[in-house]
Design a protein around this nucleic acid. Sequence first.
DNA 1: TTTAATAATGACGGTAATGTCAATTTTAAG
DNA 2: CTTAAAATTGACATTACCGTCATTATTAAA
Lengths: 225, 225
Amino acid sequence: MGTAPMAASTRIKRLQTGASTDGRSSRAKTLRKERREQILAAGRRVFAEKGYHAASITDVIEAADVARGTFYLYFDSKREIFETILDDLLERLTAVIHRVELGPGHPPILEQLHGNVERVIQVLLSNRDLPSILRRTAIGIDEDFDRKLTDFYARITGLIERALLRGMQQGLLRPLNPNLIAKSILGSFKELAVYSATASLEDPAQLRAFSDELIRYNMEGILKR
Amino acid sequence: MGTAPMAASTRIKRLQTGASTDGRSSRAKTLRKERREQILAAGRRVFAEKGYHAASITDVIEAADVARGTFYLYFDSKREIFETILDDLLERLTAVIHRVELGPGHPPILEQLHGNVERVIQVLLSNRDLPSILRRTAIGIDEDFDRKLTDFYARITGLIERALLRGMQQGLLRPLNPNLIAKSILGSFKELAVYSATASLEDPAQLRAFSDELIRYNMEGILKR
DNA sequence: TTTAATAATGACGGTAATGTCAATTTTAAG
DNA sequence: CTTAAAATTGACATTACCGTCATTATTAAA
């Protein structure tokens, strides 16, 4: 009987496709994207639950309910699907982190800071798998991922560092070591962001309280004035 | 000729051994420990450089310059040698982190905090591989490691949290959310500690400056008074 | 209905790293 | 020197996962 596959029992086998003269119809393109997104979503779930290394392609295709070969029609490897997921996440985070602008015509600095914090948390909460993926994705998976993460965090640290310098120049901030403190600030935020899934921050009031606490800690420290 | 192995060219093959009536002579025991430590040191180097997953047993035995079989006389698996290394590190860190004591008969609080910071950094600097191992060892390697790390950080967070509560009761600290702020403080420190290898903190003056900056940031924040 | 193009399938071969063990080497006691 | 115990060795069997591809299923145009 050779290698003939059989129809899977309950699997919905098709999303429907089409063809046209110029390669692929727009409908077909949409459906290709849907299938891809179906596999990506399964990947996010699996990576969030097991972490990159413990997750196998087999886990992903089982979660996506597609055959092994199908996976390889959409992604070259486990590396590639994870890269897609990570790039996506880092890009979304980058998009919502805005440089703090001084001077008139801009919202108060504190409001801008709140905006950044709350937008980042919202991105992380938009898909429950994201905080776990971020949390589990540390240095050491792969040289390329290492660089991506390191660069991402370096960009944020750079943003913070420049903000600190401007703040010192304006006389708003005390003298401090901008590089060291920028890392501290990033660290304080990372530690909390990664746990954002466990708190109930979908409630805007709670989110605001969280943001308040974090920003006040960084601004004023913990001592009584 | 079967599976007969040949003498490795330049390898120092023995540490010398001995035997006695009660199983093993104390000299033999010492030498067993030395061989074990030789393999552990190689493991630390390899794990620091490549991370847990990318490191193979083959890498470790090549770094240690012992044969495959020898490795398995001292450790059951890659998991086990890494566990030994991680346990060791966490135990040493735990040992140098002391609860802050209030009241007369104890050094000033600030000095106690400096002590903690500087001792932790010293542990991390005692072996150049340790910061990298800590940095690369995030959640997701293995359920057991996850728990160990999570527990370790939870213990520290607990220490900080209780210190914050006492500080509030004493009227030294402003009102704050102890759990959230404890995590922030831990985060700020983790981010810096992990990079401690890159700074030149062997110099006591530099280490003190580092510690000053970190503690002042947590105490006073960044705003000008 | 027929048919060509596209999509999906899963058995299978290849690869890489693991842990074992029979053989060998070294040690130290007799 | 002889010899038994302990330590070391590396070839090899095993395992587990990866990516391929010939085959089958589905679609939509003719």
